Amino acid sequence: MNAMNKTKVPVSMFLVIGIIAISFSSIFVKWSSAPTSVIAMYRLLMTNVLMLPFLWRYAHEISQIHLKEWLRTIASGIGLGLHFLFWMDSLHYTTVASSTAILTLEPIFVMLGAFLLYRQRTSRIALISMAIAIIGAICIGWGDFQFSGEALKGDLLSLLGTVAVAMHMLLGKSIREHVSAFVYSFFVFLFAGGILAVYNIASGASFTEYPAKEWGIFFLLAIVPTVFGHYVFNWLLKYMKATSISMTVLGEPLGASLLAFVLLGETITMLQLMAGCLLLIGVAMFLRSNEEK
């Protein structure tokens, strides 16, 4: 049976919502002039503030969480915090298309991790579909790749962020077998925000000296890509394989590039549009083959 049919809700609809939401992340970061670590910290901690009034409903569940789950949640939070720190900083050195295209390596890292940790195998058709989607995503950012100077630094930062989010995704899959999406998300965001707060204190970054525009951007990042993006993906980990969710995130380069064209004035070519179609075909093929039982 297809894993998407195990729930009474249209999982595909939530996948689309999540992809659109995370596609706005790079746009908001580009609009901000605050330090990357500060943007990421407030993005996460503001999400915690929004979730806090509902936390009491999960008091019993929280009291039942074992030490192993807490340690995994802390590690997952560190992975998410490092992802935001590295990837968001990459946007100061390279283009949206280039940075998000590198994120397409995430499902490869997740697939390898899922095999090593959970002995989860992937079919030949799924591997071919993954290759098609990744080729399409890389083509979207191909014209923006540069192998020297600040652009290279940005690409390397994006790669480090990709490894970190793969670790976060793999840990999240195991935790979500025993912990609800709300509890897992709340504490993952809290630990990730806490790590970034420590980093900001150590680096001497200001916590308060920002204009109203910046606080508005922090809030938008908390609402759109975090609540409607990362929280939705955390919820879906209960019903889908981590590799499949990582594959759907490949839609971000296409969505982000289209938004960057409309909102930031970045160029988009016919090659990128054709590559986007190739990407979507590959993702659809992968989800159909990889989620079949």
Results as ranks from 00 to 15, higher is better:
2 N>E: 13
6 K>W: 01
7 T>L: 13
8 K>V: 00
10 P>E: 10
12 S>P: 00
12 S>H: 08
12 S>A: 09
13 M>H: 05
15 L>S: 07
18 G>D: 08
23 S>Q: 08
26 S>R: 04
29 V>I: 14
30 K>L: 00
31 W>C: 02
33 S>N: 13
33 S>D: 14
35 P>N: 12
35 P>C: 10
35 P>K: 09
37 S>M: 09
37 S>I: 07
49 V>S: 03
50 L>P: 03
51 M>G: 06
52 L>D: 05
54 F>C: 03
54 F>R: 02
57 R>N: 10
61 E>P: 07
62 I>H: 09
63 S>L: 04
64 Q>C: 06
66 H>S: 13
67 L>Q: 13
69 E>K: 05
77 G>S: 07
80 L>C: 11
82 L>A: 12
83 H>A: 06
83 H>N: 14
87 W>P: 06
89 D>I: 00
91 L>W: 08
94 T>C: 10
98 S>A: 15
101 A>G: 05
104 T>N: 14
105 L>R: 01
107 P>D: 04
108 I>Q: 05
113 G>C: 02
113 G>T: 05
115 F>R: 14
119 R>I: 02
119 R>F: 06
120 Q>H: 02
123 S>I: 06
124 R>Q: 11
126 A>I: 08
128 I>F: 13
129 S>M: 00
132 I>L: 13
132 I>G: 01
137 A>S: 14
138 I>D: 00
139 C>M: 15
139 C>P: 00
143 G>F: 03
149 G>E: 04
150 E>N: 12
151 A>M: 07
152 L>P: 03
159 L>C: 01
159 L>F: 15
160 L>M: 14
160 L>W: 09
163 V>K: 02
163 V>N: 02
167 M>S: 12
168 H>G: 00
173 K>Y: 10
173 K>V: 02
174 S>H: 02
182 F>V: 11
185 S>I: 06
188 V>W: 01
192 A>E: 10
193 G>P: 05
196 L>M: 10
206 S>P: 09
207 F>K: 07
211 P>T: 03
211 P>M: 08
212 A>G: 03
215 W>H: 08
215 W>M: 06
218 F>E: 09
220 L>V: 03
220 L>W: 03
229 G>P: 10
229 G>H: 07
232 V>R: 10
233 F>E: 07
234 N>H: 08
235 W>T: 05
236 L>R: 08
236 L>V: 08
238 K>A: 14
239 Y>Q: 04
242 A>V: 01
242 A>W: 01
243 T>Q: 15
245 I>L: 15
247 M>K: 04
248 T>L: 06
249 V>W: 01
251 G>C: 08
253 P>C: 12
253 P>G: 11
255 G>T: 12
257 S>P: 04
261 F>D: 00
267 T>E: 14
269 T>I: 11
269 T>Q: 12
270 M>F: 13
271 L>V: 15
273 L>V: 13
276 G>I: 08
277 C>A: 15
279 L>G: 03
279 L>Y: 03
281 I>V: 15
283 V>G: 07
283 V>C: 08
285 M>D: 00
285 M>E: 01
287 L>I: 14
292 E>Y: 05
292 E>W: 02
293 K>W: 05
